[in-house]
């Protein structure tokens, strides 16, 4: 792969397959996945349950390694890296939002947001975290523990944390999957607002087509394979 090309292409997935050993059986979850995401692009990965969406997200973010094929993230090939090297890369370039928020229950809201900054060794982590929490309208809940916050509030803390280290790419796994419609809209709006402000590349895994259509491009998975990869504008508008 040409390095100058990689600077533009923030995520390059080439011929990736993933197999799991389930008891005696060899289970193929992903098969020959091949796509590229450009810097600043907003992409939704959709598909029915069990289609391999979350597995693909995990592989792209370097949380797991493919059985075959290669993945390059932010110009770095993930395959030869150790888990700790991938962790370093994530801290530097990647943000996450999870369906079940994944806040650390023993830390307050502001402490949760500070973690990526402190891991990076950024100065003024508390101030940055406070501003971000105010930005997601949680300025009055800085010192609350996750258990003291509602689901929507927890996801907003999660958003603030995801953007705290100004990531180049943000992976969101069903970010509104656990929220009601009204709260979902609020979180979605915030997500896209912050994304615009920071110019972050966005990869969202969802089965919510309405949310998917808010992105630039939709990759559709079925049975572990890409069945469609098209710009939202090229897709027929259905409700």
């Amino acid at each position: 792969m040409d390095k100058s090309t990689l600077m533009e292409e923030i995520l390059v997935v080439r011929d990736v397959s993933k197999h799991y050993q389930s008891g005696e059986k060899d289970l193929t979850v992903l098969q020959q996945i091949d796509f590229t995401i450009q810097s600043g692009e907003r992409v939704a990965i959709v598909g029915p349950s069990g289609s391999g969406k979350t597995t693909l997200l995990g592989l792209c973010a370097g949380l797991d390694m493919p059985s075959t094929g290669t993945i390059a993230l932010c110009g770095t090939m993930l395959n030869p890296l150790t888990e700790d090297e991938r962790a370093f890369l994530r801290n530097k370039h990647v943000g996450f939002i999870f369906q079940n928020f994944q806040l650390i229950p023993t830390l307050t809201a502001i402490e949760n947001v500070m973690i990526p900054l402190e891991l990076k060794g950024t100065k003024g982590a508390a101030e940055t975290a406070r501003k971000l929490l105010e930005r997601v309208r949680l300025g009055d809940r800085l010192h609350h523990y996750p258990a003291q916050l509602s689901g929507g509030e927890q996801q907003r803390v999660s958003l603030a944390r995801a953007f705290s280290n100004a990531p180049s790419i943000l992976f969101a796994d069903e970010p509104t999957g656990n929220l009601d419609d009204e709260t979902s809209h609020g979180v979605e709006n915030l997500l896209f607002e912050l994304n615009r402000e920071q110019g972050t590349t966005l990869v969202i895994v969802t089965h919510d087509m309405e949310l998917a259509r808010k992105t630039d491009r939709i990759i559709q998975l079925k049975g572990g394979q890409i069945v469609q990869d098209a710009a939202v504008t090229e897709l027929p508008t259905t409700r």
Binding site: A87, N91, Q102
Partner: peptide, 15 residues
């Protein structure tokens, strides 16, 4: 375990 997984996800080294 879940907290540790989050730490790891956010870029913390195993050690």
């Amino acid at each position: 375990i879940s907290s540790i997984a989050v730490f790891r996800c956010l870029g913390m080294k195993g050690r």
